[in-house]
Design a protein around this nucleic acid. Structure first.
Length: 269
DNA sequence: AGAGGGATCTTCT
DNA sequence: GAAGATCCCTCTC
């Protein structure tokens, strides 16, 4: 009968339609800190090799799922917006979704569908899917048939004001200011904050010009990594309990902390 | 601090 | 036709 209402703007549209700048985004000091990429880096004294070499390559992504999930902790995810602004976040929480045997994975039973095709593509391929009709979650394909790593939270590093805009766009109480640590502390929050949507599905992190990963300067040691059960997968039977979630202990931006595991950890000192 | 419900729509049974 | 790798708001303790 009646056509369905459509009132929502996609986050990316929202950003692009912004007046190209945000007062808060401009740095107070004349000499801005890291302006990242952008501007004409035409100095002949700086080869661009230093820049391009900072992207994580195929060798990094070509790891078994669990190994990759842990290795992601501390690395930097970057999205360069169409207008040149770069959004950066440090990965602090991930989940491993193994192949066919994993009952909680979209690739359970080894079934490949139009939606999960990216899970079966080469390591470093993004798998982005929509959930609950309104949010997105982003994964990175790893070694192993149908295996991928879900990115659950980031510590925002650069472009925080843009992130705040993107996150507030759809929120009712947008007047309420989000704290820095609340910008990316959840799988769909980080997608919203970085402007990641379905169009990023099947993109290659080792090749794409708009999205990539960089090696972080502060990578946690084994000691600092907390291993716990995955979130929101109760339908997965015994697989729901398996320790396939990893996060940096004590980091404020982790979405869900496992107090029991952390207590055991402390006791094991 | 924790429980409960609504939003919203693609995907697969 | 039902459920979902979520988030946010509101209500209650």
């Amino acid at each position: 009968m009646m056509p369905r209402k459509r009132k929502r703007l996609t986050p990316l549209n929202a950003v692009q339609s912004k007046p190209s700048f945000s007062p808060a985004d401009t740095f107070g000091s004349p000499r801005a800190v890291l302006d990242g990429n952008s501007s004409p880096v035409t100095s002949k004294y700086f080869t661009e090799e230093t820049k391009t070499s900072s992207r994580l390559g195929p060798d990094f992504f070509n790891q078994p799922c669990i190994s990759l999930a842990k290795s992601f902790l501390g690395q930097i995810l970057v999205h360069k917006l169409p207008d040149g602004r770069e959004l950066r976040g440090r990965i602090v929480e991930t989940e491993a979704y193994l192949g066919g045997e994993d009952e909680a994975s979209h690739s359970k039973g080894g079934k490949q569908t139009a939606r999960n095709a990216a899970m079966f593509m080469k390591p470093g391929t993004l798998y982005v899917y929509q959930i609950y009709g309104i949010y997105f979650c982003m994964n990175v394909s790893s070694q192993g048939e149908g295996a991928a790593v879900l990115l659950r939270s980031l510590e925002p590093l650069q472009g925080l004001d843009t992130m705040r805009q993107l996150r507030s766009a759809q929120r009712k109480g947008s007047a309420r200011l989000l704290k820095d640590w609340q910008l990316c502390n959840g799988p769909s929050k980080l997608c919203q904050a970085l402007g990641i949507n379905k169009t990023f599905d099947q993109k290659d992190l080792t090749q794409d010009s708009a999205v990539w990963m960089e090696p972080g300067s502060e990578v946690p040691g084994e000691q600092a990594v907390v291993t716990a059960a995955r979130i929101g997968v109760s339908y997965g039977g015994e697989w729901a309990q398996k320790p396939l979630r990893f996060y940096i202990g004590g980091n404020k931006c982790v979405s869900v902390r496992d107090k029991v595991v952390e207590k055991e950890r402390a006791a094991a000192e």
